[in-house]
Design a protein around this nucleic acid. Structure first.
Ligand SMILES: [Zn+2]
Ligand SMILES: [Zn+2]
Ligand SMILES: [Zn+2]
Ligand SMILES: [Zn+2]
Lengths: 165, 165
DNA sequence: TTCTCCATGTTACAGAATAACAAGTCAACC
DNA sequence: GGTTGACTTGTTATTCTGTAACATGGAGAA
């Protein structure tokens, strides 16, 4: 049971998202405290914006929100905040989407596989341990040493699959 | 033995690349013939350009080459040719790099994992069967059905690892 | 206090991708 | 042979994404 409270199904099913989000925010604060990094107003607000849903937002979507709330309105404002969050494990970047999503369990170090529902656009993080193992294995047979890997799956979540039927 | 002639190590090690490339081109022609699609001059040239190395090229790199050879010099020229190649399985798009690379064995249907060497920038395709299986497995436990997946690994190839040492 | 680090903001630009339209090619069909 | 219709290639213009370079301001250390 690697991730006790939030799991894949939990993201896609209706749930008490307020609790879900505030828990993630708490964990984020704890982690930054431990690392001695500062969760400044822009950064905090950026994280909150990402945490509003389980979807991914483009940098410019975030920027619009920030600008509307009185922060700077130039791209670097958003990109810097997002980069900070990603670097401290509080958010993830989705390569397929050129977009960012909040990490739901920033407490634990991880490197998840992403599950992107093509219907509701929500995003779940899956434990990628075995996937990475399989990847390292096949790569290793060819003499290639994997250092980092992007694993992003597009598909249909349970809730949307039921809705379609 | 799913892929007999070109394997991961074969890409990174010195090899007779002319043969390597012309074989891929031949397979590409055969495949298009079977599908009833046309390998027009721009498309063919685009594929040849990609086949010149095992690296990935950005759309604008390709465009520069095409323009210099008398083809159109506007972005859609390159993007359309590349999209055609990708859609017919003759090239792949690397999400991490915003770039394209020729497929080395377009004959067989496949959906590889990509191994990107951070030192020499070469790219190999690895059989992703077991990786996808592991991914489908972990996703399935959360009720998520994977339809397509991006698997891109960054690391160090054998040749570059030896060179570093 | 003063100095330094870091964070925030700006302007300006670079890089990646697509929308919308015009014109040419080519084979099928009358 | 000429016409039609699908496809291909080309253009202009615009949008979306991301970064470089520089100026300002605050909070803590010396
Ligand atoms: Zn939630
Ligand atoms: Zn869904
Ligand atoms: Zn080769
Ligand atoms: Zn290498």
């Amino acid at each position: 049971m690697p991730r006790p409270e939030i799991d894949i199904a939990g993201v896609f099913a209706p749930h008490d998202h307020k609790t879900c989000a505030s828990r993630a925010l708490d964990e984020a604060e704890a982690r930054l405290l431990a690392e001695g990094a500062r969760l400044t107003p822009v950064r905090r607000r950026t994280l909150e914006i990402l945490l509003e849903s389980h979807r991914a937002l483009g940098a410019y979507d975030v920027l619009d929100r920030l600008a509307a709330e009185g922060f700077g309105r130039q791209p670097p404002v958003a990109y810097r905040a997002l980069e900070f969050l990603v670097q401290h494990g509080l958010a993830h970047r989705l390569q397929r989407l050129n977009a960012f999503t909040a990490c739901l369990h920033p407490g634990s170090d991880h490197n998840p596989a992403f599950l992107i529902c093509r219907s509701c656009d929500k995003i779940a993080e899956a434990n990628a341990g075995e996937v990475r193992e399989a990847l390292a294995d096949v790569a290793g047979h060819g003499g290639f040493r994997v250092e980092r890997a992007t694993i992003e799956a597009l598909g249909l979540c349970n809730a949307c699959a039921e809705a379609e039927a």
